[in-house]
């Protein structure tokens, strides 16, 4: 619909505006970049929380503690019943009270004498179920299996890493709420900044817009270069903020994590996905356009009375 040459004209005009606004343009791009960067940090956080949760579930195992003094037949029937709950490939290992104590002693190593004051064997016998979860294995599925096993006779309790997964789940929920709230505020801020920058450009070119109207330009023709300019502001800011985020992620976060063994439990880290990056860039471009449109509204009002 638009003649390619007219489009060329729009681009040239947008670039002229861009240069003419000078410092204001850079300030606006800077502020929006930082705004989007903050948004990006939260996205990064949520991506990695979800990853951690995933990894925990994939590694999932259930420890089933048995009551003391169960007859061998009962223990065998428990094993059979557990076998019915989990899939064929899963391993079910029985660890007797004695084995449990040996294992614990081995873990303690030189500090073994801690146990010298302990009477008898305080450790329960247990089954360790090593699940081989399928791709779609979920936290809910794991929980269901664990609860079913817990209900069996002769079971003291089950442990399936519920604490860790639940904590991560809660954090993820909170961060997600935060992203929605912050996203809204930051989006609004971006909109206001861009619309103000464009408005300044429009003030400087008021005469030009008036003359365009007088020689028969349609409102859309007048709008186009400014919409393009707003979009460029948004896109540049979006790209810069992702670049910044990547630098921080790569040279800040990963380096720190590698140097701190505390974080070793985090099996791996991930940068935000291509889809997320595209969404961030496209929506900032869109916000730029919208910002321009808002400020143009005032200038293009018909002044025929």
């Amino acid at each position: 619909m638009i003649h390619p040459q007219t489009f060329g004209y729009f681009c040239r005009e947008a670039m002229i505006n861009f240069k003419r606004a000078g410092a204001m343009t850079y300030a606006s791009i800077g502020v929006i970049t930082v705004t989007l960067f903050i948004m990006g940090i939260f996205l990064l956080l949520i991506v990695n929380l979800r990853l951690a949760q995933d990894v925990l579930i994939k590694k999932a195992s259930i420890i089933v503690y048995l009551k003391d003094g169960l007859p061998t037949e009962t223990i065998q029937s428990i094993q059979t019943n557990i076998g019915r709950q989990v899939n064929q490939a899963s391993q079910i290992i029985y660890v007797s009270k004695q084995d449990a104590l040996e294992g614990f002693k081995k873990e303690l190593g030189q500090q073994e004498d801690i146990l010298s004051g302990v009477q008898g064997n305080p450790l329960p016998a247990y089954f360790e179920i090593k699940l081989t979860p399928s791709k779609r294995f979920s936290w809910e599925r794991l929980k269901k299996i664990a609860v079913a096993i817990e209900g069996m006779e002769g079971i003291e309790g089950v442990d399936y890493g519920q604490k860790a997964v639940e904590v991560i789940g809660t954090i993820t929920d909170v961060v997600r709420m935060f992203i929605i709230g912050i996203g809204f505020i930051l989006g609004l801020a971006t909109l206001i900044i861009i619309s103000n920058t464009i408005e300044l450009a429009l003030f400087a070119r008021q005469d030009e817009i008036e003359i365009m109207k007088l020689v028969g330009a349609t409102p859309w023709f007048i709008r186009c270069p400014y919409l393009l300019e707003g979009m460029i502001h948004g896109l540049i800011s979006g790209i810069l903020s992702i670049g910044l985020l990547w630098l921080i992620y790569h040279f800040g976060l990963l380096k720190t994590l590698a140097a701190n063994p505390i974080f070793l439990f985090l099996p791996q880290m991930e940068f935000i996905s291509w889809q997320m990056m595209s969404i961030l860039i496209v929506s900032s471009g869109f916000l730029g356009c919208l910002g321009s449109l808002l400020s143009l509204h005032y200038f293009l009002k018909s002044n025929r009375e």
Binding site: H3, Q5, E210, L214, G216, A217
Partner: peptide
């Protein structure tokens, strides 16, 4: 075609561009 009392020229554009302006807005080929 209107010739305004105060001309209404664009002072940051050249003479050529001022005139061509009226044709750009109707999207004629270059």
């Amino acid at each position: 075609g209107v010739v305004y009392q105060d001309f209404k020229l664009l002072y940051q554009k050249t003479v050529f561009e001022n005139i061509a302006f009226a044709l750009r807005v109707i999207s004629l080929p270059s």
